[in-house]
Design a binder for these strands. Structure first.
Lengths: 319, 319
DNA sequence: ATAACGACGCAGGAATCGACGCAACTCGTA
DNA sequence: TACGAGTTGCGTCGATTCCTGCGTCGTTAT
């Protein structure tokens, strides 16, 4: 048993926080090396690190740092199995405990889970990010998770990025984790019946996440679909429509620059014109859309429309 | 070539350090002649010298002596796929003709599975595509599936696309299915230990699939990593490196346009300089890479290098 | 006789310390 | 809706601690 005396920098790197934060946690919450002479360097033992790991896990769950520190401090030093039931903690929120700010992502009143996700994101802790998302997906489903957890955090990152220009790495890590989480949902739900719904990004549009959310929501509802992905030229979209003859087509555009209504018009003029053409995303201008195009306001509406198409045309043995 | 036991002075002269330093390295880091009785003269064998060579080169590259000693000490004496020598790797491959996928195999020799995958792709049948990939992954693992199945098909589609201009939808559907398959692999393997490997695309680079393959291969081997994803500006990459202090960084570039060596140079000049910087992908020009950058030729080599980093630095022992 | 040994110490530089402050986020209240 | 109070993460600054390569000294192996 060698004494793994980790330095402050090493611990900070491992946790994904700044060295100064480690010092702050020590003096504010008493969460530091058990043996530390003031003025000397901090040397974290395995037990100290375990405490900090608990701190990291609890804050990633959305628990107030002060509260998390209280739990981390009271854990028995020996033994790695310091499992703390987090579910109970989320519910019980003592009065007078506020959520603070600091270097974080604004999530508004999106709940503790979103705050925890934001914190894990700032630390680039992809494991915690993935676990949080998976838990939310299992508990609340795709639509609720998207609206209540993922979108607030993603929007927060986007705003901060637009304002300061930074946070690019954070955005990428979160996006990737969200993609992976949606992918597991997608893979888990085996599609039944033919895919009559086609999902596609607009030409040059690179943002896929909302479309992936829709895909996951459809998979959750056992609705078959086809996902084309990002940067689909109008010709390729028409080609796909002609080849597969979908009942509904969803075209996502995040930016106005990618929202050329012509690619929708071409769709409507296609030989195998789909019953429903959805222009989704904030890029589209309502007044410039060709007639016959529906514009859902949120994920729930898009899912509902897609389900309607499935229900009306799902059974080939009609009347 | 018999192993002439070198004296301390000879070794010191060869390495360019003082004799006392050799003694210091021995008693501080345990980096000395494997057989040495206290009080007697040190006699360095070839293996001992090799260890010291590693020590010298790593410290010359700006790596903390303690960390460099850890590398040198745990290097297997008989070259077990281990030779850490970055310079050697760069020089051994004077012209890396292709490595991300230059070979023109029209899916013909790649086996029946590839043919079936190509057919399902043309049909935009994402279910069949996903099943084929999942089956191959389960049977052959990530690396073999990538080299033997996915890369041939993707390359074939790419060539056809370049020639005819069509097949965009096919490419997108296949890419998405591959991503999802890799994501399930990624999610299935719980990472153990801190993530010391950082995966990132070059600036403006949009192709993520090869990086996702690497991530899946690492997850398959239970190696923790961090994936940044596509279009990572150099500043964001440096930011992530400084925040998480990884041991190895893999930067993927598919196109020459995105392979600016400056973003690697910045990495090497970073305060928390990683031990290993891998320039992966066909975009990089071997002759324009800064010294100290390793250029893996294929997925297997990249995985092997990453594993070496994990194995060599698993335990951050104290002094 | 020469080179190496072990112990000790030293100077330069990197990392960290403690204190302070700032900016940003939430939430209750006017 | 706007604003102040409470939190929180982290940057900055001068001082201090720690690491590291190497020189010196008396002794010992070759």
């Amino acid at each position: 048993m060698a004494d793994e005396a980790l330095s402050a920098g090493a611990v900070a790197r491992r946790l994904g926080v700044a060295v100064t934060t480690l010092r702050t946690w020590h003096q504010r919450y008493g969460l530091g090396p058990s043996q530390h002479v003031p003025g000397h360097h901090r040397r974290y033992t395995a037990a100290d690190l375990a405490r900090l790991e608990i701190m990291r896990r609890l804050t990633a769950e959305g628990i107030t740092p002060a509260e998390a520190a209280r739990w981390a401090r009271q854990t028995p030093a020996p033994g790695l199995a310091g499992e703390v039931s987090t579910d109970a903690l989320v519910e019980v929120r003592p009065l007078g405990v506020r959520d603070g700010g600091g270097q974080t992502i604004p999530v508004g009143r999106a709940g503790p889970a979103a705050r925890g996700l934001a914190r894990a994101a700032m630390r680039l802790d992809s494991v915690a990010i993935g676990e949080t998302i998976a838990r939310a997906l299992a508990a609340d489903g795709v639509v609720a998770t998207w609206d209540g957890l993922l979108r607030p955090v993603l929007v927060g990152i986007g705003e901060r990025h637009a304002a300061t220009g930074g946070l690019v790495e954070v955005e990428h890590v979160v996006s990737r984790c969200v993609s992976e989480a949606f992918a597991t949902v997608t893979r888990a739900g085996p599609a039944t019946g033919p895919a009559r719904i086609l999902l596609s990004c607009a030409d040059e549009e690179q943002h896929t996440l909302p479309l992936e959310a829709l895909a996951a929501a459809l998979a959750e509802a056992n609705v078959a679909y086809r996902m084309l992905g990002a940067r689909v030229p109008a010709a390729a979209l028409v080609e796909a429509v002609n080849r597969t003859g979908p009942a509904a087509v969803v075209v996502w555009s995040h930016l106005q620059a990618t929202a050329d209504p012509a690619q929708l018009t071409v769709l409507l003029a296609s030989p195998r014109r789909p019953l429903l053409v959805l222009a989704a995303g904030p890029g589209w201008r309502a007044d410039s859309l060709p007639a016959g195009v529906v514009r859902p306001v949120d994920l729930a509406e898009a899912v509902a429309l897609a389900l309607a198409v499935r229900d009306s045309l799902g059974q080939p043995a009609g009347h």
